[in-house]
Nucleic acid binder design. Sequence first.
DNA 1: GCCGTTTTCGGCCCGACTGTTTTCAGTCG
Length: 578
Amino acid sequence: MPVHNADIARVFEEIADLLDIQEANPFRVRAYRNAARTVGELQLDLAALWAKGATPPKLPGIGEDLAAKIREISATGSCSLLERLRRELPPAVTELLHIPGLGPKRVRTLWHELEVQTLEQLARAARDGRIRGLPGFGPRIEARILEAIGQRRNKAQRFRLVVAAQYAQGYASWLREAPGVAQVVVAGSFRRMRETVGDLDILVTARDAGAVVERFAGYAEVAQVVSRGTTRAAVVLRSGIGVDLRVVAQQSYGAALHYFTGSKAHNIAVRKLGQARGLKINEYGVFRGSKRIAGETEASVYRAVGLPCIPPELREDRGEIEAARQGKLPRLVELGDLRGDLHVHTQWSDGRHTVGEMAQAAARRGLEYLAITEHSRRLAVAHGLDAARLAQQGREIERVNRELSGIRVLKGIEVDILADGSFDLPEAALETLDVVVGAVHSKFELSRARQTERVLAALEAPRLDILAHPSGRLIDVREPYDIDMAAVIRKAAAKGVALELNAHPERLDLLDTYCRMARDEGVPVAINSDAHSEAEFDNLQFGVGQARRGWIEARDCLNARTLAELQRWLAGRKRVRS
DNA sequence: GCCGTTTTCGGCCCGACTGTTTTCAGTCG
């Protein structure tokens, strides 16, 4: 049974929970939580390294003890400390921590005083009114517990970025109408362009904070006001999304924006840098003693700790601070850098519009070229093209190119990669095209070994230019198929094939961490809309956001190249083939 | 449990809000 990094992270997370309830040293607890995060995000397979007899690199926050535990978990799947803690505490008690309002202290009290160990026992105790009498509890908390269990809210719901954007924009517009408001910014993971967001964090600068809070709570979509103070409030909207508000004075705008954008780990790292310089950094500014020395802009906060301003998408404590210190921050790709789109559908398969309509829509968005890439014949539900229809479509594309100026339409295909790694159309048909995009649309359940073999075989074949949506995941719908993505990226590098970052908000595939790996391996990334209608070109913005999270620069991006450069790249690939 | 241009010991990010309290602990982000 292979042990994945996620398994190691889960063990550390559970240890942290149990230690927390045991009232262990809070910094020891934090060490386990930090380690869980570090290991969970790591792309290097630690257990595989140990199995091979190799020594993993030194990881920040993981010293001798935790490294030994990683080794133990890698070998055995478990950890003697966790086994011991599970004997000392009721194992289900960590579930209680996920109820809002319950932290380690209250969970410990519930367990010691009422012998509450499970959610069912918690519900019963609350219904019987036994909780309100406990020290540190009262009728309000008891009611909140019952409500949380009733709504089964303990399962954290996240919203796709595109969905969150709709709620965010409406709410922000509403707040801009409050008296005395200067600025309204949606910060948090939304601003960092995470693919999903758990809640919305809205920052407002205004003369009169009270008026803003009042308007915030009075929004028509508010289902519940969770908390409400003089400068801060939290609500849940009818859609279920939580929204936090923070109001500060203009002079604190940059510090508050930095604080509210996060990530938490990034903020902690920056505050530590400040601390080392004798500075205190909070949401009101950067202070030396009681004197404010920065905070009006985000750049001033970073400058105070000796760094250039770090773009929000990089703020995950994944090396961006070190890069900033060394002057090696990437110059992240921007929407305006994109000159083309290499994955577009029309009425010929399952798209809504004609070749000409899609070309004009692309031109209106400032693109210089697009590739029409229909599904191939196997995907019958999408009216996939066979060789004959593909040739027919080619003649229409030539006609459109004669009729339109300012935009160039390339002949392409999104050809199915079959289970054995071969393509769904004959070589001769693919040879007539400008660009071949290949994708997996079937047999998602293959074993890791066979799925990897399949895609590596497709990359090996001479006809593939771009591998589309490489993991196949659909956010909240379908898990990625099990595949060794590091091997795929290495093969793409070796064969000079590009990887797609599919910009559809439900895909956003490549994941950010793999974008970074592709960049490090020199694999070009194509940020493609996969548009099935004119409006879907707008999705490119989400692809760009994801690419930025993956440290992608314009020079790493295949479709940031000019048409001439792209054609040279394609021609070079053909030369290699023949 | 980690870590070190001040440290191998003694620190570890920081503040608002709630609900319980009669000055503050616990939770949260």
